[in-house]
Nucleic acid binder design. Structure first.
Lengths: 161, 161
DNA sequence: CGAGGCACTGAGCAGACTGCACACGGCCCG
DNA sequence: CGGGCCGTGTGCAGTCTGCTCAGTGCCTCG
């Protein structure tokens, strides 16, 4: 059975977990931790970014450290026809970190950050002013109850083999 | 004026942008790209993770590559008293990547992934079964219109100096 | 059964990078 | 003016990287 040439296995998962523990770890150290040879680890790491299994480094940049401690999610309903244009306009807003097209009564889910309450208000207004936007609804993130993590998934994958 | 000992400046931003371009870049290469000396770059990098300005490496792991190509956001309304218990239960669900406590009519915003539609249905059911959860509303991410990025913020910070 | 493919291992090697130290210069502030 | 703080250039020993080669166990297929 060939085919699944691009699926990650337990070794990959363990490798990623090791990296999560110490992102700056040397290949040698990783090899030691996961119990594989240096050669193998090197090959697998190469394969991982050949496959694009790793998202961009930008993901690791903490907006709070950049001076944007506030996070909000804004649902947006748009004039369907103008979806592309709206997406484009959102793309041009620096504070917008992410935009998802979602199912349900709302069309878009916008993830954004702001310097403070005033700033948030300003940005929210900005979104509303975009041509094609019908209405928006802002939810301020007051607290992060579970911080972003993928370790549980990795552990599950690492578990079996 | 001292005080802001932990604020990032333009050099930091440029450093992070360079890292975003090539996460595996050597300190030497980074120094060259941002036009600082190797020593300085080394010092700044050290400072960056001393400050915790970088989020965990787990952020870079792509759930899709792990076999979870579906993403959904679920808003959850809970019995207020049970918030902590609910958060705890959510924390124990591997497919839950993130949980935010938000303002507005809904209490929680849950970010999760699933293997396929059936899996998503199962997980959604699981959430609803949690003690203290009053109601949930699931929005499937159909498309990512703007992929996660912080580069615009970094560029803004890099711009002035 | 034997051939071929595949993944992992161990060894080796030249070259590059790291981590650290030291000394110096510019700048700002008390 | 004297310190702090930051950035720079130099230097060095130790380590890591990137790559290659050869050998092994396993699995699949003819």
């Amino acid at each position: 059975m060939s085919g699944e040439r691009d699926a990650l296995d337990g070794h990959d998962a363990r490798l990623l977990l090791a990296l999560a523990r110490d992102p700056r770890a040397t290949v040698l150290a990783l090899a030691e931790r996961v119990g594989l040879s240096r050669n193998t680890v090197q090959a697998r790491l190469a394969r991982l970014d050949r496959l694009g299994a790793l998202d961009t480094f930008e993901r690791r940049v903490d907006p709070a450290a950049l001076g944007y401690p506030l996070t909000a999610f804004v649902t947006v309903r748009v004039v369907q026809r103008e979806l592309a244009a709206v997406a484009d306009a959102l793309d041009r807003v620096p504070e917008v970190l992410e935009v998802h097209g979602v199912s349900g009564p709302e069309d878009l889910l916008v993830h954004l950050v702001a310097r403070d309450a005033d700033d948030l208000y300003r940005i929210a207004g900005h979104l509303l002013a975009i041509d094609g936007v019908e209405r928006t609804s802002t939810s301020l993130v007051m607290r992060s109850l579970v911080g972003f993590r993928t370790a549980p998934l990795l552990r599950r994958l690492a578990g079996d083999g």
